[in-house]
Design a protein around this nucleic acid. Structure first.
Lengths: 343, 343
DNA sequence: TTGTAAGCGTTATCAA
DNA sequence: TTGATAACGCTTACAA
């Protein structure tokens, strides 16, 4: 199309406009010291040539790619997708592009993704770690020298990281107390690995409420391990087919919930009638299930925005100290927990 | 940590190893002509210095970023997330990173994202367009000179694009016939905008089956417009509160389905009993709903993989002609369509 | 097999 | 306010 085949560069724009290369750059980055006539000539040349900047080159020279890397444990979880979408909007408004990667809930992939993003010179990293205790990932994040934002995770070794957390503990306490008030004494809890903050917080809160009500530690009723549907399904089947099955169950996430519901269907057990059921995070399934399912909810968009803001904060002021934001949860009561257990 | 503060570069690796800069590069890219001793010395130096390559620089020089850009209409749709995840795995295996962007179902954002990815010098583009007729996006894609893969879209003007399509027509025909065999004569169809291939294909197939059965064109029962839940909810309410409501309904996507179900709940209408219901694409909600919902299904992972393969195909051989892959659909019968309508 | 050197498209420093 | 020019970190002819 232009001079010599390939895409026109700043150099050709300069030649055509009869100005210096650096002047074109100044116009492009709207530098304050450019005359109106210069701006006009350059713009004329730019549109005539159909010039488009090469962001790789600019990033290399500038030492910053104007890009934020995002690592999520599982993109297929609609929750993460919402977080990413909200964050992307916030960051986009500030001129940053977002590179999203998914680790498929494998800690080694987390490490791989973090490294990849580092080498691509992203300016900041927002991560939802699969395993906050995995040394490889921590090391990887420590090597990164831009701001790091951890979502719902805590890594004490990472001096440089801001965090946005959810107050899962309070939510779990409310849920557990709610079930106890309904008369349940044998409540089961299925949640992800203890290596992820939310699970640890939930288990602790769950046990605290038991203790506070003078109830024994229901060791056999607490299952931690994974956020995948399969884990929810298997655990539910085991729990409900044991000698003393629970009368209520709390699922620690929407993916776990689908597993729980699959199991219930297989066993012919109906939530709300035969078993009180509570899930974490509101999704269409929990709302539209028959009966609708009580959930520990939170503002997931705000969660994503908060992550983005924490990153931007330290991007605009590299000396700013890392911060921690804690977001609240609320208990949304629905029919899956209205009836008193028949046992 | 190393010489002068910043991260070590290839230059410092070379100096420490006492070899030429280019030799380090050769080792890094495992060029065939490197002696074992050279390789060893360089590697020693690399680990000693903690060297890490700058992919921005490599990409600039090479004229290729080893990156594939992905544009999806809505990341929050679990279906897209699965497609992306599958594609990412395939592309990652071939050494390509994936930059995911979401346009939030806004055609202008599609354009914006495409441009952004272009400027970032991605090597290929895989896109699920919001509006395949939007001139801005088409122009944008046309300017791109690497391979373009369109997902479930067709743009005749784009000579350079491969496509992976779903045979939505056959699926819709099966679904419609199935309902007619159950005795339904007034079947409603709610689907996305006609500007998106799947909707157009569905409407056509739906009408074809009506014609083939000697039934009039149910103009009042076909609603096209958007894939968002709100559109599903509003349309369902209107349809079911009209003078001659349908006895069966087909929802053209999982997001639409949640809207449909919300509306049904509000109206006190039960799927499977009062209204036969079919949805497109299987998600936990369709499977776990009471009653389970009949769906037009497809292998969504394969869809994503196919997109990735089409991109890789032309990435490794730039002269390869664009190709088109069509994936089948199947009808999964469930309880939402077993009963004969009472009307 | 290895080294020298040019250049990828920018930005930023320095003079003018 | 503008123009030369030197990087940025890497790859790749070409020479040795």
């Amino acid at each position: 199309m232009s001079e010599a085949g390939g895409r026109p560069t700043i150099k050709e724009v300069a030649r055509r406009a009869g100005v210096a290369l650096s002047s074109v750059s100044r116009v492009l980055n709207d530098h304050p010291d450019v005359s109106e006539s210069m701006r006009a000539r350059v713009h004329e040349s730019i549109t005539a040539l159909g010039y488009e900047p090469n962001l790789l080159a600019a990033g290399l020279r500038r030492g910053s790619s104007r890009t934020v890397g995002f690592i999520v444990a599982d993109l297929r979880n609609p929750l993460y997708a919402s977080i990413v979408t909200a964050a992307q909007r916030e960051l986009g408004g500030a001129g940053y592009a977002v590179v999203i990667t998914s680790s498929n809930s494998e800690a080694e992939r987390d490490e791989e993704m973090a490294r990849g993003l580092r080498l691509r010179q992203v300016d900041a990293l927002i991560v939802s770690l699969t395993d906050e205790t995995h040394p490889g990932v921590i090391e990887e994040l420590a090597r990164f020298d831009g701001p790091v934002v951890l979502l719902d995770r805590q890594v004490p070794d990472l001096r440089n990281a801001s965090t946005v957390e959810t107050d899962h503990g309070t939510g779990m306490k409310r849920a557990t107390r709610h079930l106890m008030e309904l008369g349940h004494e044998r409540i089961a809890l299925i949640t992800g690995p203890l290596e992820a903050r939310p699970s640890a917080q939930r288990v602790k809160a769950f046990l605290d409420v038991h203790r506070e009500n003078g109830l024994e530690y229901p060791e056999d009723l607490v299952r931690t391990g994974s956020f995948e549907p399969g884990f929810g399904e298997g655990s539910t089947s085991e729990l409900l087919q044991a000698d003393r099955p629970p009368t209520a169950l709390i699922a620690g996430g929407n993916q776990l919930l689908t597993g729980v519901l699959r199991s219930l269907r297989g066993l012919g057990i109906e939530a709300g009638r035969d078993l009180a059921l509570i899930s974490c995070d509101d999704v269409p399934l929990s709302e539209l299930h028959t009966p609708p399912i009580t959930v520990i909810d939170r503002d997931i968009e705000e969660f994503g925005r908060a992550g983005a803001r924490l990153a931007l904060e330290r991007l605009s002021d590299p000396d700013a100290a890392p911060r921690k934001v804690v977001l609240p949860t609320s208990l949304v009561l629905r029919e899956s927990t209205v009836r008193v257990p028949s046992h």
